[in-house]
Design a protein around this nucleic acid. Structure first.
Lengths: 349, 349
DNA sequence: TGCTGCGATGTTAGCGCTAACAAATGCAGA
DNA sequence: TCTGCATTTGTTAGCGCTAACATCGCAGCA
């Protein structure tokens, strides 16, 4: 054997046949040991396992995928922003997936144009993923995903509202509406009646659900919700709205409490109020949503809603594996919790 | 053909042979078209492409990986926290990878025990990734990764210092030391001489480099750096340190400026100073590092350092593809930029 | 003793693709 | 006309694995 051939031989990862030879069995027996087939004599299995560790053998997953038609990989589609929710969800999904022996393939999209989305999904299909989890916070994502003809099981992480909850769609989400209610009930309990809502973008499920939670909670107490201030998710938008709120409060006709649809908005509001000398929570209460890192150290520390992302990840994976297995699954909602801090208090007498 | 067989036939994804049959060529010609081989008659290629789109054919990547021994997948190993830097890096990597036709497989670890890390790397090896990018902010990660015997190319995203910059290690990072210098020079330019540094954990590369940038900048101006206050990355730690700083400042022997190793720490400091009535930047200047979302809306808005994550992602992918191709590559450093806001000003006369 | 049944193991085929080689075709130049 | 060579296309052989079937040995029983 030439030196090159020998080097090539050494470089080559050991195959099942190599293991079989060393263990003195057939490659099929090695396969059986690896797949926990029942009918293998314990001492044979032992010999095989020994050979495996001696050779440092690793099963070739491409070959396995080729013949089993399953890749043990799930695709996770997310937004390319560093937004708190999606990011935390990705991490949670990865953990849940690995626990169950799945690999996670990631794809992200900047913009939610249908085309980019299709690219990403196509990417997954080419890769041969067994299922897809879409972190789909917006209408057009959900619509585009629903519109893609695919035999693959898809789980959407989205607080789908009735319009989008078509049969066949599997969704997992934090109960954003409940979160909105928790905040609003908290403010109502404190005695507020004029609770302004800074809503997120209207095409985001979470934004709509939080808003709905807010309005339902108010109506349940006989308070007619006012109009909402529509924002994007940025602190800048919160700041802009906060300036107007500050002016109104100082003019004596502002709300006594503000429920911002996320913590960034709340941060902007706090900043604007501070700039104009409106005190929180003395003059106006402010609450947020997400409980991002640092929210406890805002000035004042922020009352907000904490979301159980780990649970979302696990539930999504459960739903997906069930779907892969062919079982029918419906929507799952997971409850968030209210975190009361110093930015909310009773209205001035 | 039975109904079942027919159904099975229909469910079965079209293969290269199906395309070949429809186009009236051999499967090899289809392969050639797909792989852009030069010697295919344009009209033949046209016919093949037509058949491909008619059938909705997608190449089976498991079969391809099996025969080419390349999976077109890279593994990205990261921490499971929602820390700003790692998160942003993952997204940037994914984009850079997709641009180049790579899939990204994600694995995350909670703790940096060598064992967990090996699990994750093993996960990648079993999957047959072509290369690995490790977001390795800590010594033990880097050490553990270096210790793993693998033929796979590995790129570390870490500001490796001399101890870890062994030959063979490919690293890509934001120049954290430069970032530290930028902040410190900025404070020195404003007239500060007593700049306290709240350092990150000592086993984090970024923390050490930021600290070194700080001390070097001071020494370059003939100022002997004082001791640093060692913290973790949390706002809580910044708050704790901030209380002591506030007391010192009020007692008249505090620093005139504080350089916090990240924005969370800075947030905690701002909060503590505010609580104790120490004004920023009037009584003391505060600067952070990261430029996280909302930093511009802290009270006061935070002077900090912004990191070019997209560039990191691209550079890392370039380094990795070069390494996969067998080319030697060294360390690459990318320059961050200073963002001056309202939390820094000249010291009181 | 010979047969049956079953657990343990081996043998064979083929998943869908690419690499290597083989064959056919076309065209220039002698 | 034929040779020689480049271009285009086809054929064959695996990649490493699992599923399906084949085989073997041995206990249990008539």
């Amino acid at each position: 054997m030439s030196v090159e051939a020998h080097a090539a031989e050494r470089r080559r990862a050991p195959s099942m046949a190599d293991v079989a030879e060393l263990a003195g069995v057939s490659h099929q027996t090695v396969s059986r040991v690896l797949n926990d087939h029942p009918n293998v004599r314990p001492e044979t299995a032992e010999r095989v396992r020994d050979a495996i560790s001696r050779l440092g053998y690793r099963r070739n997953s491409a070959a396995r995928a080729l013949v089993t038609r399953r890749s043990a990989t799930i695709g996770v589609l997310t937004t390319s922003s560093a937004l708190y929710g999606p990011t935390s969800t990705v991490v949670a999904l990865e953990e849940a997936a690995r626990e169950r022996g799945y690999f996670v393939s990631l794809a992200s999209v900047h913009t939610f144009e249908a085309e980019r989305l299709l690219d990403a999904l196509d990417h997954f299909m080419v890769q041969g993923v067994d299922g897809i989890v879409v972190i789909a916070p917006q209408d057009d994502v959900a619509t585009a995903v629903e519109g893609v003809r695919t035999d693959l099981p898809v789980v959407m992480i989205a607080a789908l509202d009735d319009d989008h909850l078509r049969p066949g769609t599997v969704s997992v989400a934090v109960d954003q509406r409940l979160g909105g209610r928790l905040v609003t009930d908290h403010l109502l309990d404190l005695g507020h009646r004029d609770v302004l809502h800074l809503a997120g973008p209207a095409d985001w499920f979470d934004a709509r659900e939080r808003e709905r939670g807010w309005s339902e909670a108010l109506r349940d107490r006989g308070v007619e919700p006012g109009h909402v201030v529509r924002c994007d998710w940025s602190a800048q938008a919160g700041y802009d709205a906060g300036q107007r709120i500050a002016d109104a409060v100082r003019a004596g006709d502002g709300p006594t409490a503000v429920f911002a649809a996320n913590d960034q908005l709340a941060l902007g509001v706090l900043r604007a109020l501070w700039e104009r000398g409106v005190r929180v929570p003395d003059d106006v209460s402010v609450a947020g949503f997400d409980d991002i890192a640092g929210a406890a150290f805002f000035v004042p520390s922020l009352t907000t809603v904490s979301q159980p992302f780990a649970a979302v990840g696990r539930q999504a994976l459960t739903a997906l594996t069930e779907a892969i297995g062919g079982a029918a699954v419906g929507a799952r909602l997971i409850e968030p919790t209210l975190v009361v801090r110093a930015s909310t208090a009773g209205p001035r007498a």
